[in-house]
Design a protein around this nucleic acid. Structure first.
Lengths: 352, 352
DNA sequence: CCGGGCGGGTCTTTTTTTGACCCATTTTTT
DNA sequence: AAAAAATGGGTCAAAAAAAGACCCGCCCGG
């Protein structure tokens, strides 16, 4: 807060600064997450010529932030500590801290973390979001609790970035939803197991498809094992989940064309656990699913950590996460700025 | 203090930043003090090509910090507020705040103000020092006190930069020394009068040469008017003075070659009020002068504001100002860094 | 043991920056 | 009022810096 005027000054007197700063930061961050890797890979990643990238590399090398060896480019310890320690000041420099404060007020959530960059143009942003989420997660962990994690790339990133370190004892990790789609790495089951492994604790799996009719569900509830795990999920005190855009999720669930059309008509923009929300945050549709049994999970669980990024998810985030005073929201700069755009277009009037 | 790590980060990730920052700052500062003035004058001042300066000007114009008109370049209000407000953050960015703290400890003075730049390569640094001194002066002013000001370019700069604003009532401004040299603008008398005028208060003049034998002095003391003003000077509670290098001051007082030689032999490096100090801060010589009557003024006066700058004055500053716990010292980056160099060469052992 | 990716070198092309002018105009001085 | 000085802006060629497009030898992992 006290920094802002100074930074505006630097901004004014050296307008080329933000660009340089962001460029170098992104470079270091990419190396941080993908080291060791070479010039050409980096150049391809950032879609710049190899020569121009090389110049940046040489500067960073001369600064002692990276080490270039025959196996590739790596961060030095100085570079590593920089890339982690500069994040707060860079965030405030880029106005993201201010953005966070605005979003907390606007969305009426507990806490907002905005990560620099845009998921859609820089993949490591996803990892950065994951890392931010793990910090929140660690804060919430208490002995004996149940931690429910959902599926999707965002949650997978959280699992990826979770440091391997013992958690408070007696924690159980469970999937927050059934099987959905095909990619095993993004299944809630898989992610729950990986999270548990990182935390050195136990986990339970849910061997059911996420889409399920009420009848089938009622029948399965008679199975003791299944009832047990579902009740365990219902008793979770931490829930981590991502957010899907309505369209994408409907397609992934294999919805029929007429269903898609109905969703569009109803203004559905976001999806979580089979519930579709319109931009006012109202549920307009739900697909028969486990979500029904786990209904209102997001409103009962003590700590909800929502991880979602990318400009195109802005509307979905607003729809799903707005007015949830217990939610921690982790998103990226792209989505955050887009959300503010949406609000300013509507004359700053809350959507709910 | 909390800023330092961040700034080091910026430094590391954007090594070209300090140069840009200092260059633009100096440019703005020069315009601030000399506006309106044209491209060619500026280019000549900074000893760079006209074209390269033009580019800088264009950048600053696009940033809305300066206005270029047919009468010359001027700071916009944004630029003006920037050039004054950025000084603290630039100082801390350039490590000057840290320097100040070090010097306070090392020299054992009350307070140190380091101004960015070097007097010897940038004349406006003198004005900047003057401006810094006026801020200290304003703090010290109390109703009814006597303010003694010495001569020289540094004190003249203080008078120049002093804002025209009424001071507490009943203040009397007096010269702290007699006439010395030829340039009227730098005479203590002249400066005292200008300061008084700026403060809208009274002043008294001392119509005596600074170099004076004891006999002549004794005789003059019988003159009531002269005794009166000398006693007034002795009752001063604020004293502003500069610092001369021994060599320069000896020459200016018209010392004979053998005197010069003796001073050199005795290791004299600094001069104030006719007293010559060696680098251990000991008085090794004094020229018969009013200073004798005003002996020890610097040790009796409540607030002493010492203004001196330029690398070549570093030794003199250390010699004269060291161990004066009531002194405010205003100097420039050049002198400050040079002083620290001197200390580190001598293994950080205090010189006194 | 071999192939892909690595850093580094080098050449040419392109872009940017700089230098060196000149000009019309305004401002200041005489 | 005239003259002199200083102003910003324009232009074009030279110089320097950056970028592109290579190629090479090396090292590591399959």
């Amino acid at each position: 807060m006290t920094l802002t005027p100074d930074q505006e000054n630097l901004y004014l007197i050296a307008p080329e600064l933000p660009e340089i700063l962001v460029r170098r930061y992104r470079l270091l961050r990419k190396i941080y997450y993908s080291a060791p890797l070479g010039r050409r890979s980096l150049a391809a990643y950032f879609q710049v010529g190899e020569r121009v990238l090389r110049r940046e590399i040489e500067i960073l090398r001369d600064q002692g932030l990276i080490a270039v060896e025959s196996r590739g480019i790596t961060l030095t310890s100085a570079g590593e500590s920089l890339v982690t320690s500069i994040t707060p000041s860079l965030k405030s420099f880029l106005g993201l801290t201010l953005l966070e404060e605005k979003l907390v007020k606007l969305l009426k959530v507990k806490d907002v973390t905005v990560v620099p960059g845009d998921l859609e143009s820089d993949e490591v942003v996803l990892l950065e979001m994951g890392r931010a989420a793990t910090r929140i997660l660690r804060e919430c962990l208490k002995p004996g609790i149940v931690l429910a994690v959902s599926g999707g790339t965002s949650c997978a990133a959280v699992a990826d970035m979770l440091p391997e370190a013992p958690a408070p004892s007696g924690i159980t990790v469970v999937p927050a939803r059934g099987g959905l789609g095909e990619v095993v790495d993004y299944q809630a089951n898989t992610i729950a197991a990986r999270v548990a492994q990182k935390l050195r604790t136990n986990y339970r799996l849910l061997h059911l498809p996420d889409s399920l009719s009420q009848e089938a569900l009622q029948m399965l509830l008679r199975e003791k094992k299944i009832k047990e795990i579902l009740d365990l999920i219902n008793s979770a005190s931490i829930l981590i989940h991502g957010i899907g855009t309505a369209e994408e999720m409907a397609r992934r669930r294999g919805a029929a064309p007429e269903e898609m059309e109905r969703l569009r008509e109803q203004g559905a923009v976001g999806e979580v656990f089979g519930f579709f929300y319109n931009s006012r945050g109202e549920i307009v549709e739900h697909i028969p699913s486990l979500g029904l049994y786990l209904e209102d999970l997001g409103n009962r669980v003590e700590n909800v950590i929502v991880v979602a990024g990318g400009r195109r998810k802005a509307k979905a985030i607003v729809a799903v996460v707005g007015n949830h005073p217990r939610d921690f929201l982790v998103l990226d700069e792209g989505a955050a700025k887009r959300i503010l755009e949406l609000y300013s277009r509507k004359g700053d009037t809350p959507l709910f």
